[in-house]
Amino acid sequence: MAVLVLLVPVSLGLGLLGLAAFLWTLRTRQYDDPEGDAARILSDRWDDRPAPPDPVRDTPPAPDEEKRR
C-alpha cells in the first residue's frame, strides 16, 4: 500500500493539470464562438501562413496596432 503515497499525488496532479488547461481555455475565450471555431478549422485560408493576431480576440488591443498595419 506504500505505493499510494506516490499514486495519490500523481492522480491529483494529473487532475490539476486538466483543471489548469480548462481554466486556460476559459481565460483565452475559447468558448465565445464554438460554432465558428468548428467551421474555421475547415477553411484553408491560413494553411500557408499563420493568421495575423486578432485584436478582437486577444484583448486588450495592442497599442502598436497602427504600425503593424
Binding site: D32, D33, E35, G36, P55, V56, R57, E65
Partner: peptide, 16 residues
Amino acid sequence: VRTARVNLSLRRVRIR
C-alpha cells in the same frame, strides 16, 4: 477595415 471577425454562434460580425 482593419479586421473583421465573424462569430458564427451569435451570427454577428465585429469590425475594427
